[in-house]
Design a protein around this nucleic acid. Structure first.
Lengths: 198, 198
DNA sequence: GTCTATATTTTGATAGAC
DNA sequence: GTCTATCAAAATATAGAC
């Protein structure tokens, strides 16, 4: 049945993503992936033509989801600061929805560079970057952000803090992704030094 | 001669670190390392007993350097904010001195976890983390830092921003490491929103 | 200290039975 | 759609000549 086939594919994809995130793509063997799904390595090739095809699907479907989230944020037509807050929030939600794919995308760029689909990924990456830089430069232009720190430098610090949070953040207890997003936005925009007025 | 032997060892270590940083430890073969040094793979084993031994030396000597830099900062006995600024500065100088080792340490923790020397590395990592958290908690205690964002959350955002800068920062032109450290400290402590008083 | 040659293991992938 | 069996390539590591 089609449904069962789709389930197997999904199981392979999520098991592979988990392994890739934990120990890297190169260190993860097709035998390990098959083990987790409960089949033998040869059977994987009924669902995917190669190990690289699995990597590709993990990364591209993750990027498609991320771009969709960003486009919804841009459609809100918010002022720079609010737009940046929403981009942080959307990014952290995307990371929560697919933490393993996020790690793979963040850690394995040198591997992805070797895939035939690299140009696609590169284009999506550039679009994501431009979304962030657009909000930052708009805030700089309208006077709501500092001008003594380069937008590119701010972007990179913020980006690494946001994306690498998948390495340590685990949704537990009362510290939700919403709270994390709020703290991140407040920290990067307002700083950590105590406010004068409280 | 002893000097020549030492030179060969250094050449192997730096070529290996460069490769490991570029494409990951697992993706880098002993043949590739030997190629870069200008010898055949078998000859590497006269200098190191295994590929893992090369990884170990890169990581442990990096951590030794980092701990030394941190201890010099702590010896200054600075107030929390100034101490944090110096920790950022010291970290970025360590990263500049050994960018490849920094990348390896940041990216390959899952590989390092499999080495027999993992407990050593783990201890050093814990010490480094405690150095940061000590400064942050001191600043929280004396009222110079906010109390509405958990020290652990602040630490992790700051840590990722600092260490992952090796992925993009290249010392070029007038934007020095000193300037990068200053921008990083100012950003995390004062924020990116425009100051009210300028 | 480096090279030649090779042992051993692991890995991605395939062919064909069921 | 999965398994058995296996191939071919690649990788770490070793032994011994020079």
């Amino acid at each position: 049945m089609v449904t069962q086939t789709a389930d197997r594919r999904s199981a392979i994809l999520s098991s592979a993503a988990e392994l890739f995130a934990q120990q890297g793509v190169r260190s993860s063997t097709v035998r390990q992936i098959a083990d987790r799904v409960g089949m033998l390595s040869g059977s994987l090739y009924h669902h995917f033509p190669s190990k690289d095809a699995i990597v590709r699907e993990i990364v591209t479907s993750y990027l498609a989801d991320l771009r969709e989230r960003y486009s919804r944020v841009l459609a809100m037509n918010l002022a720079p600061r609010a737009r940046l807050e929403q981009l942080i929030h959307a990014s952290l939600l995307a990371a929560e929805a697919a933490p393993d794919a996020t790690v793979v995308y963040q850690n394995e760029m040198s591997y992805i560079r070797g895939l035939p689909e690299f140009e696609e990924v590169k284009a999506a990456t550039a679009e994501v970057q431009q979304t962030w830089l657009g909000a930052i430069e708009a805030g700089r232009a309208d006077g709501s952000f500092r001008t003594d720190i380069e937008p590119r430098v701010f972007y990179r610090f913020l980006r690494d803090a946001v994306w690498l949070s998948v390495r340590w953040y685990r949704p537990e207890g009362s510290y939700t992704v919403d709270q994390l997003a709020e703290d991140c936005a407040s920290l990067f925009l307002d700083g950590y030094a105590a406010f004068d007025d409280d």
